[in-house]
Design a binder for these strands. Structure first.
Length: 345
DNA sequence: CAATATGATTACCC
DNA sequence: GGGTAATCATATTG
């Protein structure tokens, strides 16, 4: 046992051991070795407060993690304190011993100093072990709780609803801007990067096989179309919403009906009054309507329409990326023709 | 249980 | 830096 000390003591001196520094830095970064809050009970309270600040369900997921982390932190600190105390006690004990011995034989201060330094080194190596195992524990905790891949949770129904609504009403260009992403994130109670992930996944999976998403597309298209028309085309006879049900979608919109819808949109667009909201609404409708109509089997009749509405099936640019926004949302003041050209993608 | 759906990560590209 | 495509790891479903 002495051998260990001598070996360690020989090579290790004041210069900060890189390994130790690494551990210290990590513990600090993880908030384990951070400055202890004033009150003793502050740890739990602080953790709770910190979690309560930001995301709603996100923090809930992390609360468990934080609780465990603060547990680790507490253990770490008590252990550290214990070691320190033990070190001091042992030092004084040895000092006393030496003092006693000094009566019978001369003891140089150098010897005392050496003893003390050996003791300290021994205890600091114990501390090192403590830090190492604490780091390990934190790492495990992190991988267990923070690796979202491992702890994947589906978004709640409403969130996916909102996201799908946006996606299908911007089918021609489903690339939400940073602002739009933030908005969606806020509405859905998720993070912006989650929104980005969602759209990335959605785009690729939609494109991969559109047929699988037809029902869903119809559903959202019909819903938003009905919504929009009932808002923008004031009153009128409107259309019986008809079940937004997926199966019935084909039957729900017959040719004439969809034609009416389109006409109303067109005229409104031509009006070009009140840009902003209305314009955006219309643009959305173009997408959704296009989908509905194409699904309703409007191919035999409206030839012109059929061509431009022909959706992703034969779409010339199945990929979205190639076709940057053709004036989509930003210019509501275009002539009626622009709608067609716009939808031609 | 297998099969599918789904959110996150990765590699690679522009 | 943001996009796609492939992939991973889990959740949900039948």
């Amino acid at each position: 046992m002495n051998s260990v000390l001598s070996i360690r003591g020989a090579q290790e001196e004041e210069p900060p051991d890189p390994q130790l520094m690494r551990l210290d830095n990590m513990l600090l970064a993880e908030g384990v070795a951070g400055p202890e809050k004033g009150g003793g009970s502050a740890a739990a309270a602080a953790a709770a407060a910190a979690t309560g600040g930001i995301g709603a369900d996100n923090s809930a997921e992390h609360s468990d993690y934080r609780a465990k982390l603060s547990q680790i932190r507490q253990i770490y600190h008590t252990e550290l304190e214990k070691y320190e105390q033990a070190c001091n006690e042992f030092t004084t004990h040895v000092m006393n011993l030496l003092r006693e011995q000094s009566r019978t034989r001369p003891i140089s201060p150098k010897e005392i100093e050496r003893m003390v330094s050996i003791i300290h080194r021994k205890f600091s190596s114990i501390q090192m072990q403590l830090k190492q195992s604490t780091c390990e524990a934190v790492m495990i905790l992190r991988s267990r709780f923070l690796d979202a891949r491992r702890k994947r949770r589906n978004f709640n129904k409403q969130a996916t609803e909102i996201l799908n609504e946006y996606f299908y009403s911007h089918l021609s260009n489903p690339y939400p801007s940073e602002e739009a992403k933030e908005e969606l994130a806020k509405k859905c109670g998720i993070t912006v990067s989650q929104v980005s992930n969602w759209f990335g996944n959605k785009r690729i999976r939609y494109k991969k096989n559109i047929s699988k998403f037809q029902e869903e597309a119809n559903m959202y298209a019909a819903r938003t179309a009905v919504n929009a028309t009932s808002v923008s085309a004031h009153g009128s006879q409107a259309n019986s919403p008809s079940t937004p049900n997926s199966a019935g979608s084909a039957g729900s919109f017959n040719m004439s009906n969809s034609g009416d819808l389109f006409m109303s949109v067109q005229s409104l667009n031509g009006d070009s009054y009140q840009g902003g909201q209305v314009g955006a609404n219309i643009q959305s409708q173009v997408d959704t309507l296009r989908h509905v109509i194409s699904q309703t089997g409007g191919y035999s009749d409206s030839l012109a329409a059929s061509q431009m509405y022909s959706p992703q099936g034969i779409n010339t640019n199945g990929g979205w990326q190639d076709a940057p926004t053709p004036s989509s949302v930003t210019s509501p003041t275009e002539g009626p023709g622009s709608v067609h050209s716009d939808t031609s993608n």
